[in-house]
Design a protein around this nucleic acid. Structure first.
Length: 214
DNA sequence: TACCGGATATCCT
DNA sequence: GGATATCCGGTAA
């Protein structure tokens, strides 16, 4: 646990640079999903800046992955953003209630995306508590799920198609590398319906973090 | 018009 | 810790 605290302090206090579009442009969505662990998701919404370390992600591939909304080249108004340029948000409504935040990767016309499933809060914790209507500083209930973290950061479907190289929602690199030995992998959550694609181990999380969703 | 995909809160033990 | 209740929008027919 000491290691965990040191990790977070380094990320917390180092200065950050906004991830450039090239970061999202790679053609291996599972590699990008792993590399996003330890990066810092930030929002500046309604005059409140909030941020947190990404501790859990899932990769979705637009070709040959039934768990992806854009599987098999499905191209509709909803999925169109995933076929656009990398480094944009794909936010969709789940259960009619929860807003889930994804990052579009790969090049134009290739519909890959990474779902952010959990973060550890850094800045704006008071605002997160207010938006969530529950929890307190240090309580994982603030952001340990894909619908919880969007609520904490003020992200909704109104933020779909947002350029992540902009000033509303972005991701920072605070120069901290997560060793492969600290990364756990497993099956993606809630994709039982996807047949054999449900068996792909494309969920990535920081083993020692107490902020992962499960 | 019908079907289906999904996370969270709450209540109970 | 485990069971249970909950809703809306996207997609295809």
């Amino acid at each position: 646990m000491q290691h965990h605290l040191n990790t977070m302090n380094q990320i917390r206090f180092q200065s950050g640079t906004i991830l450039p579009r090239e970061f999202y442009a790679g053609n291996d969505v599972t590699r990008i999903a792993r590399d996003m662990l330890g990066k810092v998701l930030c929002s500046s919404i309604e005059d409140h800046q909030t941020s947190g370390v990404i501790v859990e992600t899932e990769a979705y591939c637009g070709r040959n992955d039934k768990a992806c909304h854009a599987n098999n080249g499905l191209r509709t108004e909803r999925t169109e953003v995933m076929y656009g340029p990398p480094g944009h948000s794909y936010v969709y409504l789940c259960y009619g209630i929860h807003h889930l935040f994804n990052v579009v990767t790969n090049r134009k016309d290739i519909a890959d995306a990474v779902l952010i499933r959990a973060i550890e809060p850094i800045e704006g914790i008071g605002q997160m508590i207010e938006r969530r209507g529950r929890g307190s500083a240090g309580d994982p209930v603030l952001t340990n799920g894909p619908g919880k973290l969007t609520q904490a950061l003020g992200i909704t479907v109104a933020d779909n198609r947002t350029d992540l190289c902009g000033e509303r929602i972005w991701i920072e690199d605070r120069s901290f590398e997560i060793p492969e030995t600290e990364i756990g992998t497993g099956l993606r959550i809630g994709v039982d319906y996807a047949g054999k694609d449900a068996d792909r181990p494309w969920r990535y999380y920081m083993k020692r973090s107490s902020w992962v969703s499960c």
